[in-house]
Amino acid sequence: MTIPLSYYVILSAVVFLTGVLGVLIRRNIIAILLSVELMLNATNINFVAFSRYLEDLGGQVFVFFALTVAAAEVAVGLAIIIALHRSRESINVEDFKLLKW
């Protein structure tokens, strides 16, 4: 029995929306970073599912690139967060008030 494509697309939509909600609601910058990762992984689910459905390898190749970029993004992001934590002793976005949001 094969799982229909729509299941994957619904799963990825749910994961994506969870990520979007997380970015908008959470106040800890690490939690926001994790939520962004959820969004990127929702994308990967989509790519792999579509790739299988369309019998086209392009989508899987895209996933490799997306994963690599996501890793680079996390590296840069954590570096920024560490620098910020050193100067402010906080990673709560509500404490960052030097600039008005």
Binding site: V23, I80, F96, L99
Partner: peptide, 11 residues
């Protein structure tokens, strides 16, 4: 301020 700008831009 520079770090804060960077973090906001990143997020």
């Amino acid at each position: 301020r520079s770090l804060e700008a960077s973090a906001k831009y990143f997020v």
